[in-house]
Design a binder for these strands. Structure first.
Lengths: 273, 273
DNA sequence: AATGCCGTTCAGCGCTCCTGAACCGCCTAT
DNA sequence: ATAGGCGGTTCAGGAGCGCTGAACGGCATT
């Protein structure tokens, strides 16, 4: 049983007079279609997509046709299933090539990975989540995954907390509460008061410390980085099993990371409030 | 002076009754906006975008807002210029991770680069062009660039000619003529007859040879690869300065490439006609 | 044969998107 | 200072376009 969509959606006059900052509905739907394709759900049938987004099949079909013409999605010849198309990769490469943080951070990540022996990642703020855009994995037998291309919540990760600390407290709070403070472990920040305390602590230290707040057994430090010019804001994290990332160790890594980032002029755009 | 757009576009009743395979106009426009962002034009002002696509500013603005909500484009805070957003990279990574050809070809490319010492690339067919999705650059002082993420015509490149040879002749001809047979060098294929001769030769040999047809001084071989299941079709190329890529040498490389590709079951889906 | 699910097509209605005009802010030239 | 130009943003309202349900054909499964 899936959301029994109102038999006549058109009946609803959508009586929202709030016009400010208008979005084009059909485009929004098309982008939502794109958003369905993920790492673990790479292939969709038309019907499944339509059900998922609660759209009539024919509407979804029209939209997919349009995306297809641009080669952003493709339809497999036999199964008729839809997947992302090469154009997605093309756009991604253009972004990657033009994003200053990414270009400048890569050597920093490598250096930090060498110094610490742990996994080092770069995440940026996207749609109120952390998107991991680069990583160097640790050579240790037991280590955290790089996970390039995945998204994570802001409140429960070292990178997320570092990013939050670079934003005004009010904005940080709004972002987090909009998504809810889901507790992934007993240590996850799950109240606004905790969040505020953590925000202040992180900001005063200059880096965040995540002690098993996202996943049992893994800890990390996060330090904020940014490109004020392009307006990108992100964070570098150094993560590993908690047995290796002890608070003292973590602080050393954080200091090294801060120094390395500063040297690469990945300056940290403190936004006050 | 730019295309003086018809003062009243709405007047044109767009009297096309041909309904078959409908595309959603607003989505198409949004995707065209996305398509404006390229490697060398990464940043656009609203006005420039609107002019380029011959759209009213307000329309472009609406569409951009919608793309922005999805983080597919971003607006720089100060200059108000638009750039691609992180979501573009996310989608690209999802594609890259799920594309079988890409995953399987990578070790093949490395191996071929080692054997030949030349630049080896993987391109796939996208929107009737070759999109380069992976490459290993030669270590030679004088070498061809990897050029990941760039697009090239089908008729004037080794990869393109290899791809064409995997398609039915009729389809290959249509594709190429739709884009025109622009001559980039005196050797570029520039007539349909030449194209047909070359198609037959390539198909019988099993690989293409490009002797300075794209750029003076550079030659390459191309061999078709494909993933019949996902319906991707592409080609591997080995390229370098013509002084090194002599016909005999080229044939050796081609044979090595064919063997390596076959071993990696990058089977070549011959489509007859 | 019958049933179910899928993808695709289509005509027509009514909602949504497009649009020009107006506004604001910034810069340059006068 | 002032005018003029240019860029970005907002908005109300008309009409053109996209959405929709229904219908169809193909392919499994019952």
């Amino acid at each position: 049983m899936h959301s029994t969509r109102t038999t006549k959606r058109s009946v609803i006059p959508n009586n929202a007079p709030a016009r400010q900052s208008y979005e084009v509905g059909s485009v929004r739907k098309a982008l939502e279609l794109l958003g369905c394709f993920s790492r673990d759900a790479g292939s969709w049938s038309l019907s499944d997509l339509a059900r998922r987004l609660d759209l009539p099949k024919s509407t979804a079909h029209n939209l997919l046709r349009t995306l297809q013409a641009f080669d952003l999605v493709r339809q497999e010849a036999e199964s008729r299933a839809y997947r992302l198309g090469p154009r997605a990769m093309e756009l991604g490469l253009i972004f990657a090539r033009q994003n200053e943080i990414l270009a400048q951070a890569r050597p920093v990540l490598r250096r930090l990975a060498e110094l610490s022996g742990e996994t080092v990642k770069l995440g940026i703020l996207s749609n109120e989540q952390v998107l991991i855009v680069a990583a160097v994995e640790s050579a240790h037998q037991l280590h955290t995954r790089g996970d390039i291309g995945t998204r994570w919540p802001l409140h429960s990760t070292g990178m997320g907390k570092a990013i939050l600390s670079a934003l005004p407290l009010s904005e940080a709070t709004e972002m987090v509460t909009r998504h809810g403070l889901t507790a992934y472990t007993p240590h996850t920040i799950s109240s606004v008061e905790q969040l505020h305390r953590e925000w202040k602590r992180t900001r005063s230290k200059g880096f965040s410390f995540d002690a098993e707040e996202s996943e049992a057994g893994v800890s990390c430090v996060g330090i904020p980085v940014g490109d004020p010019l392009q307006g990108t804001i992100g964070a570098i994290s150094i993560s590993g099993p908690s047995v290796r990332i002890r608070p003292q160790q973590a602080e050393l890594y954080a200091r090294q990371a801060i120094a390395a980032a500063r040297a690469a002029s990945l300056s940290y755009p403190l936004e006050h409030s």
